[in-house]
Amino acid sequence: MRPARDIEALRERLKAMETDGCPTDDARFDLGHAEADRHLGGLAIHALHEIYAATTPDATAALGFALGLVQRAAGDRPVVWGVQAMAGLETGQIHGPGLRELGLDPGRIVLVRVKETKDLLAAGEEALSCGAVGAVLLTAWGESKVLSLTATRRLSMAAGQGRATAILIRLAAQPQPSAAETRWRVRGALSRALEAEAPGHPTYAVELLRHRLGAQPNAWIMEWDRERGVFEQGGRNAEHQQSQRPALPGGLVSPAADGSAAARGGAVRRYG
């Protein structure tokens, strides 16, 4: 195992050089999801994390996951959320009460609506480096040349400088190389049904695509617990769910209470 440790040491040295002598800080946060935390060993707080919506209809799931990360990373500090107009038109406008339902006080959020990607980046950089905000969320729509390696690098530098968490949410875009600390792909996942087969708590199928410090790509199903503010091992594998349960028969309530109870104790499946 010696070579591995050497590589690790070299990585550390490289990292120190990359940040141009700025003191790197080791502040990290975890997700509350036991398995993922073991795998990741925590995520850097003052860094850029990138989240891709797997498909356009999964945009809301990607936002939900991002808001979970924000609450884990930034505590009660103010949040600036930059949204590109096109994203709002295609996937819906952010709804204040919906934020509250995910455990985030809408009063903490300063919403910045822009048209162009370059304005989004400029606003994000400004907010990150000013030192007054805990996290900056940026929702970018579509593929864009402006969102280059350099641009993401500037964001992550600004995050380190202003000691804030940067989260870039990419909708309608394919994963691309960037300077992000981690890159994720998120889609909605079937929730654990509540009583009377009602849709349950927010559940995401989360895929780790890249981790700069070398954690292997992996996938989990995570359920957001608003009351405790943690991600939990949740949901069930979508295929499993489908094979077990047909689509709703008409308007009748299907006998599901036992199924969901079994799922609660069920083992977590890897996804993807």
Binding site: Q93, P199, R226
Partner: peptide, 16 residues
């Protein structure tokens, strides 16, 4: 802002 019931999942959507 309405205070959600701890047991309830979100009853209002995040995006509208």
């Amino acid at each position: 802002w309405p205070d959600p019931d701890p047991a309830d999942p979100p009853l209002r959507p995040l995006q509208m």
